[in-house]
Amino acid sequence: MAGLLLSETEKVFILHGVQDDYRSDGRSNIDYRPMELETDVVSHASGSARLRLANTDILVGVKTEIDVPKPDKPDSGRIEFFVDCSANATPEFEGRGGEQLASSISNLMQRAYHSSQAFNLKQLCIFEGKQCWKLYIDILILECGGNLCDAVSLAVKAALFNTRIPFVKAALMDGGNVDLQLSDDPYDSKLLDVGSAPLLVTLCKIGENCVVDPSAEEESCSVISLIVGVTGNRQYYTQEEETDKKTMEGKCTTIAMHGPGSVAPKTLKEAINQGIIAAKSLDEALGQALLRERQENIGFKKHSYGFLK
């Protein structure tokens, strides 16, 4: 983290706090900081969300484009992640300064969404082998206060939940080319099935223990952090009761490690399990919040705050 200087004694204080399961801001090791989430904040995008996790501020916009599917997967759509570290977060990101961090996050997201069990790309197919939707997921990091990956994954899932894809009204075949006519009505559109989209959970190893949702200070105390991507559960994202009740297990779609240190295999396994549990409760909370917001939206009860709050 930029501009953050901690003395040795401050680091020891944080470390002792983690050992006693009572962190410097009063949380336990498995607690998240409060979050604010709002969807549909950018009207030029098909879907958008803004998430503020304590000091971390993420804005995600989803744009759709018609593209040609990949030859090896003719019935699937395409999805592309782009992360932009705004210089608003820290002057170090000015110019090309944030590109390394940006590409590491976008690669991580791309890997987490790669599995077909994580995000079903078939729902983006329009015309097999000829046309498909391409989703550009643009992530803008406006402020860094630790735990970027978790915040990004939550905001992306919220933005995808909010994304509307217009229906195709007519398709004209002209030789080998397809000419599509899309519906102009913004409400004549479908929503994506994002229930199973993965969430990332960062586990920061401080001393001998792992904590979730590290703040910027805690991140600077840790030598290594583990990031697990866990698929979501579809039932949290739908109000239909008749969906089969079988609870889908959170499956790991990606595991990554960051930092110069190393961990023992046993600690690693414990940390992964801890991550899966955390992801499950995060997923449930996110689903509830998104459904509640959609309900308010239908009833025209929702106030739009954006950054003015």
Binding site: V42, D84, S86, A87, D138, L140
Partner: peptide
């Protein structure tokens, strides 16, 4: 005075490829 003006990729009707530069 050092200024940087950048535009989010999703800010315009058509998607921008680069936010700045």
């Amino acid at each position: 005075v050092n200024c940087q003006y950048s535009t989010a990729t999703f800010s315009t009707g058509e998607r921008k490829n680069r936010p700045r530069g």
